Simulated assay, not measured.
Amino acid sequence: MRALLSTASGGPETLQLTELPDPTPAAGQVLVAVKACAINYPDVLIIEDKYQFKPQRPFAPGGEIAGVIEALGEGVTNWQVGDRVMGVIGHGGLASKIVVDPQRLFHLPDERSFAEGAALILTYGTTIHALLDRGHLQTGQSLLVLGAAGGVGLAAIELGKAYGARVVAAVSSEEKAAAARAAGADGTLIYGRAPFDKEQSKALAEQFKALGGRGGFDVIYDPVGGDYAEPALRAIGWEGRYLVVGFPAGIPKLPLNLTLLKSCDVCGVFWGAFAARDPNANTAHVEQLFSLWREGKIAPRVTDTFPFERGGDAIAKMAARQAIGKLVVFVD
């Protein structure tokens, strides 16, 4: 089998395409022949040793896959060789074969491609948990989405609309604004490139406030962080919920007096830990996502694909914050 391995801390240029022996599933495991692997921002961080989890090297990045079950370990009864599957595995997806705990897998519908399957669960799973469990989003409420043209951003637009919210998308270019509008955003805002000085931060806050209206935003979905966070928080409504999802622009520092003045909540969103701690609730969320997928209310937007040999280029594009929607590497 082939694998794109991280052998030393660093950027995508440090990854090495390597031949390895085929793995064998132990009891309770399955062997998956990987067909497609989606690239997400954690893949940028994990090879730089900046992610919450630091696997022992060498390891392959790639936390979201779709493929076909090739072999079953002893005691596995709910799956069959040949089953088409999709799932989130943490890391290891940039390899032609991988041993997986079957609890991490879901059946890939026959009518869906491997690229679509690889691109669904992490972004939409994160977002449905964020909006429903942490944000308590209700029909008729307002939702501001930062970084709205990325994978989780577009998922937030679609899910926000599916649950009856008014959605405003904040992005960094007109091309990204067009993608947000195509996903269903009711309004868009194009912000400048951080860092911001005090006056620029104040001006951005006023732009957010204008779009939030007199009552402000009920929920703010922030997968960006950095200098965008405080201006967005200033546009939150009374008892609003600010959802902390990620930090590609840096880890912000927020003036806590704003939370008092708005009686609002700043809520962390750690979907991976939620899924591990409450797998039944996560499975229920995924079933909702499959239902919305069938109804055409959500659909992962795969905007660029890469051959296996260029998997590092996909990670580099993600690191440069150039991605719109989802990037997928075809492993096989």
Rank of each mutant, 00 (worst) to 15 (best):
131 L>H: 05
169 A>W: 06
145 V>L: 10
195 P>V: 10
154 L>E: 03
170 A>I: 09
151 G>K: 04
186 D>F: 07
163 Y>W: 14
152 V>G: 02
161 K>F: 09
142 S>W: 01
142 S>T: 13
180 A>L: 04
193 R>A: 13
172 S>G: 15
176 K>T: 07
126 T>Q: 10
140 G>T: 10
195 P>T: 11
129 H>Y: 14
131 L>P: 01
184 G>Q: 07
181 R>G: 09
164 G>A: 13
154 L>V: 10
190 I>N: 02
183 A>G: 01
136 H>C: 14
160 G>P: 02
178 A>N: 11
134 R>S: 04
135 G>P: 07
142 S>A: 13
153 G>E: 12
138 Q>G: 08
123 T>Y: 08
166 R>C: 08
152 V>Q: 03
130 A>W: 00
170 A>S: 14
136 H>G: 13
170 A>F: 05
194 A>P: 14
145 V>P: 05
138 Q>D: 15
151 G>T: 10
157 I>S: 07
162 A>D: 08
127 T>Y: 02
194 A>V: 11
162 A>N: 05
121 I>H: 02
169 A>P: 08
164 G>Q: 12
135 G>I: 04
175 E>S: 13
137 L>Q: 01
141 Q>T: 05
179 A>E: 00
134 R>K: 15
163 Y>I: 11
155 A>I: 11
189 L>W: 00
187 G>L: 11
180 A>G: 07
158 E>T: 11
129 H>A: 06
195 P>Q: 11
173 S>Y: 05
171 V>H: 00
192 G>N: 14
161 K>R: 15
151 G>P: 00
185 A>H: 05
132 L>P: 01
172 S>I: 06
129 H>L: 12
192 G>W: 12
146 L>A: 06
193 R>S: 14
133 D>R: 15
147 G>R: 00
149 A>I: 08
168 V>A: 12
141 Q>A: 09
143 L>G: 08
139 T>S: 15
149 A>T: 09
146 L>R: 08
150 G>D: 06
167 V>F: 01
141 Q>I: 06
158 E>V: 13
149 A>H: 03
122 L>D: 00
193 R>Y: 14
127 T>A: 09
139 T>F: 11
193 R>K: 15
170 A>M: 12
180 A>R: 01
174 E>W: 05
139 T>N: 15
148 A>M: 10
171 V>G: 00
180 A>T: 04
189 L>G: 02
155 A>D: 07
134 R>I: 07
148 A>Y: 03
143 L>C: 10
160 G>E: 03
136 H>K: 15
120 L>I: 13
168 V>C: 09
162 A>R: 06
131 L>Y: 06
